[in-house]
Write a protein that binds this DNA or RNA. Structure first.
Lengths: 105, 105
DNA sequence: CTATGTTATCGTATTTTTACGATTAATAGT
DNA sequence: ACTATTAATCGTAAAAATACGATAACATAG
């Protein structure tokens, strides 16, 4: 009953680095708190860490950790402004993500 | 130096259930092996579990587990055909994912 | 220089994910 | 019914993610 492996119907053009970057972006948004942060930033552009902390039911240290993950994944950008940090969505990377997902799926 | 929380610039229309579903889909693809499986299915439509196992460097039990995660997340569909299972991408759910991501980001 | 406000990092406990071998389940062929 | 083939599930060990309090770092105000 074993069928031979069908020939590929097409190829996907994606470098190892690009694929790793995509997986990292998927992983970063695969967490309810981080998704909430992205949603918050989408509706509240240019807010500081404290605003995000206030909007969430978790400790400041944990929020900071999640922001780090989102930043390293490329979803957000943090600009230090005085003692505070302004966070915003990284529009270029988000566009790249959507474009690549559209190519593949 | 504390700024007041800026007013939301817009709202995002997303039910709790939809948001949970999106997070689950992001999480499922946030794993290198599962991403590879999706890529494999995109280029090799209608193959069986064994084909996927052969294409990956991990044990059959682990592949089966990953397939379950992808199926529960809605990325793929498994149709039992004799002793084997044919897997394919769940095109409707994928379209839904892309559409929602486009709305939000 | 000191105090304050803001955020990041450290150390750690708990939970979740990942991977494996072994076993079970289910179907098809003889 | 018996055997072979295919895939899912079980039990479990190891690794990674998540959350917290405490502390450190850094800029600004006084």
């Amino acid at each position: 009953m074993q069928t031979t492996l069908p020939e590929p119907c097409c190829t996907i053009d994606l470098s190892t680095a690009e694929q790793a970057r995509l997986v990292t972006m998927f992983k970063a948004l695969g967490n309810p708190i981080r998704f909430e942060i992205i949603k918050f930033l989408a509706t509240h552009p240019q807010c500081i860490t404290g605003d995000i902390v206030d909007a969430l039911p978790i400790a400041q240290a944990t929020v900071s950790q999640h922001l780090k993950v989102l930043k390293q994944a490329g979803w957000i950008d943090g600009i230090v402004h005085g003692p505070a940090t302004n966070y915003c969505l990284h529009v270029e990377n988000i566009a790249w993500f959507k474009s690549k997902v559209g190519e593949i799926l």
